[in-house]
Design a protein around this nucleic acid. Structure first.
Length: 302
DNA sequence: CGCCAGGTTAGAG
DNA sequence: CTCTAACATGGC
């Protein structure tokens, strides 16, 4: 049994992180148990199953299955640190938000909420494509079938744990195999095309790392199926650019509409104006605006 | 003939 | 450069 401790910043909420990870019961890429999360990942070619739970001023990682040498342990440690966004100092953002009526209450209510990463670029792009133009619930259904059908699995204590399907595997699929899962033809072609772009080395996380936001965005948008929204989403969740955010996102528009009591969705110029004070922190402003959607749904149901 | 969803593309104007 | 139809189906 291997235990790794990871110190956490003051402005960090493990509960809010778990809440996010609990968002859909159809999620197969991690499993939630009481107050901890189990995740399967590939480390130096080996499958490693670990848990993350909260400790005193730390996150504690426990390796449940798989052998790790010191290098491997370090890979898992930095993976979790990045996954839970422990590197970011949120204080400058909170300082800005306290001056803004739109976000003031939200950052107080959800203090310590951070961007849960999607560190695998391939996964991030495919997930964004699946979510294009459909409701989240259906997007999760598509993802569930996709992962069940094409992802690698292991069994641990009678439960299955899944890896996201590899680009190599997906690149060999015929569109019809995805149509069976209720992908639209368009989504099926995008999915396979993106996988082929990875296999052929036209795109990779390494290749984009170190680029400026603008450069990386342009690289991503070259790939069919990836537009501005998807590129920004990936740059936000995978590369953690704090200033990347999907300006045209429908959820974001609804959040602003609700919070400001507008009759219709805000236009692009209004959104740009709203984000102006958050230069360099747009991703976090977006995160908290998305979070506000839950409040609105639950209050409108009452 | 119900409208909108965490959009993107190709093609027209 | 901007605008629009087509895409496919679930959720409310």
């Amino acid at each position: 049994m291997t235990l790794i401790r990871l110190p956490v910043p003051e402005e960090f909420s493990f509960d809010l992180s778990l809440q996010f990870l609990r968002r859909s019961p159809k999620e197969l890429l991690h499993r939630l148990e009481h107050d901890k999360v189990l995740k399967l990942m590939q480390v130096e070619g080996k499958l490693i199953l670990f848990t993350v739970m909260s400790g005193k001023g730390s996150l504690n990682i426990d390796i449940l299955q798989g052998d790790l040498n010191p290098t491997g342990r370090e890979i898992v440690r930095s993976y979790v640190r990045e996954w839970f966004d422990l590197e970011t100092d949120l204080r400058p953002f909170y300082k800005l938000a306290r001056k803004d009526t739109l976000l003031r209450d939200l950052v107080r209510k959800y203090r310590g909420y951070r961007i849960i990463g999607q560190l695998d670029l391939f996964e991030s792009l495919i997930w964004a494509v699946l979510g294009q133009q459909i409701n989240l619930s259906f997007a999760y259904s598509l993802k569930q079938r996709f992962v069940e059908q094409f992802g690698q699995t292991i069994e641990h204590e009678n439960q299955k744990h899944y890896l996201f399907p590899s680009a190599a595997k997906v690149s060999t699929l015929a569109p019809e195999q995805l149509l069976l899962l209720q992908f639209s033809r368009q989504k099926a072609l995008y999915t396979i095309g993106i996988a082929q772009a990875f296999v052929e080395g036209r795109i990779s996380k390494d290749k984009l790392s170190g680029m400026t936001l603008q450069e990386a965005k342009e690289e991503l948008i070259r790939i069919k199926g990836i537009g501005n929204w998807t590129a920004n989403y990936a740059l936000m969740k995978t590369f953690r650019y704090p200033d990347a955010f999907p300006l045209e996102d429908a959820g974001l528009h609804n959040a602003i509409k609700n919070l400001m009591g507008l009759n219709s969705k805000p236009d692009v110029n209004r959104i740009k104006k709203i984000f102006k004070p958050y230069k360099g922190w747009e991703a976090y402003a977006t995160l908290y605006l998305w979070k506000s959607l839950e409040d609105f749904i639950s209050s409108s149901k009452k």
